[in-house]
Nucleic acid binder design. Structure first.
Lengths: 185, 185
DNA sequence: ACTTTGAAGCGAAATTATTCGCATTAAGGA
DNA sequence: TCCTTAATGCGAATAATTTCGCTTCAAAGT
């Protein structure tokens, strides 16, 4: 993702400051009116540095998003399939409705290099979810497939966020899980 | 959408030329490397005109997308619920996988004024789909709700297009329709 | 510690994007 | 047909973005 040859100390501090500035600015105004100049001022990092390290605003945002994605959101392990699914659904609903929800979508769309990173992240998440389903199977439950999970629960959560800009409540998220679990098998 | 006080003749020709140029350029390169200057050159319309009429590149693209959306894609009326649903699903799958599929998503995300336009379009489409479902009910079939249609069929189509950049085939679209029709009611 | 050198700071220069003023064209209505 | 004036064309002015050359700082290896 970022092959810095000298990743420690100052570079790390700069990176942190810049990321914080981006998230900060992004929570106030939308990413259409965001500029590298603003990020430079807010973070106290010189503009030329931003251009040298990230090249474009888009690449910087992608870096931030990837960072955020890779840090948070562990797949839950509550002991029951329904518990896991509900926890996960509610969490995704919250994430996607949050300030950087739109960025997830954007990051998935654009980009060249980032596309790869994003694919990697998706793969990783898919593997973890697969693990969740397999744990359920090991307990004797009969879980849905990963594809069904994505289509019946996750896709609608994103859809609502994108097209209706409406946060999906926990109750509605649970309805989706109900639907998934009542699928014929 | 565009309250032009003098919509005919030259203005219309300019608008058409510009829209064509945008679609043309967009089919070649992605919308990250698109600029108003390019559109001006390709269309033969002066750059200042583009700025005056559309203000920003984003607004122009939104205008193009809205135009495209409003023209095509009539809701099918095949005589059976399943026929209507399958035809519609296949059509959406094709649209969203096409060259300006990503733009639909983008248009839904950004924007201030456009948000309204988009909402209007969504409303309009929702009304037509609602009509489709009501026709089925009138025939004695027991159709799903509009919400179920959107969540079970449409949302997964968009999800696949956005996150996997993979066109959903007609067969898979039909699988989604099957799932919708086998929902408990 | 000391050295090497990648990364950051700084301001100016080059480039690109956006706006402005004015002249010209042609819609739309009388 | 003629008038009025919105819309466009045109080029210059202004503003913004992006790059450059150079200096300074400090990470990583010895």
């Amino acid at each position: 993702m970022e092959p810095a040859r000298r990743p420690g100390g100052r570079s790390a501090r700069v990176r942190t400051a810049v990321h914080e500035a981006v998230l900060d600015l992004l929570s106030k105004e939308d990413w259409g009116s965001l500029s590298l100049a603003q990020v430079a001022e807010r973070s106290g990092v010189h503009q030329a540095t931003l251009y040298r390290r990230w090249r474009t605003l888009g690449a910087l945002i992608d870096d931030v998003v990837t960072e955020q994605l890779s840090r948070g959101s562990p797949v839950p392990d509550t002991g029951t399939l329904r518990g896991d699914l509900e926890a996960y659904a509610v969490q995704v609903a919250a994430d996607v409705a949050g300030p950087l929800g739109p960025l997830y979508v954007r990051a998935a769309q654009v980009g060249t290099r980032v596309q790869d990173d994003n694919q990697l992240y998706m793969m990783d998440r898919a593997v973890r979810l697969q693990g969740m389903l397999e744990r359920a199977a090991a307990r004797g439950e009969s879980p849905p497939t990963l594809l069904e999970l994505m289509e019946v629960v996750i896709a609608p959560l994103y859809y609502h966020a994108i097209f209706f800009n409406r946060p999906v409540g926990a109750d509605h998220a649970r309805t989706l899980v109900d639907r998934l679990l009542s699928l014929p098998r």
